[in-house]
Amino acid sequence: MTTKLEGTTLRVGGIADLNATNATGFRDETRAALNTGTITLEVDLSRTTFLDSSGLGALIALHKTMVSRGGSLRIIKPTPTVLQILELTRLHRVFEIVET
């Protein structure tokens, strides 16, 4: 997993799978990388091929974290399979999704 802080935006990427094995680590590492000035969290899922309910739970938790500090979470370029899962669970209506 990679993290890059640019101004008020933290970008997280390089995630192949987001599942029960790594979801908690992903959530905690991302939270640890946030600083007090971070307003936007961008989660790049352009390389993610597998997402399950644990991964969804981690994304929801981060969404909650960002909202609680007055910021937001964006999903960047989800792969078609990830987008299918977000749509199946209706979370595409909860997260801001940037497809291009």
């Binding site: 309910s53 739970g57 929801i60 938790a61 969404h63 979370l91 909860v94």
Partner: peptide, 18 residues
Amino acid sequence: RGRRILRRLVADPEVEAK
């Protein structure tokens, strides 16, 4: 269990799945 989790997520996204 899943029904409860998803219902919470959809109804209240602030609730963690776990």
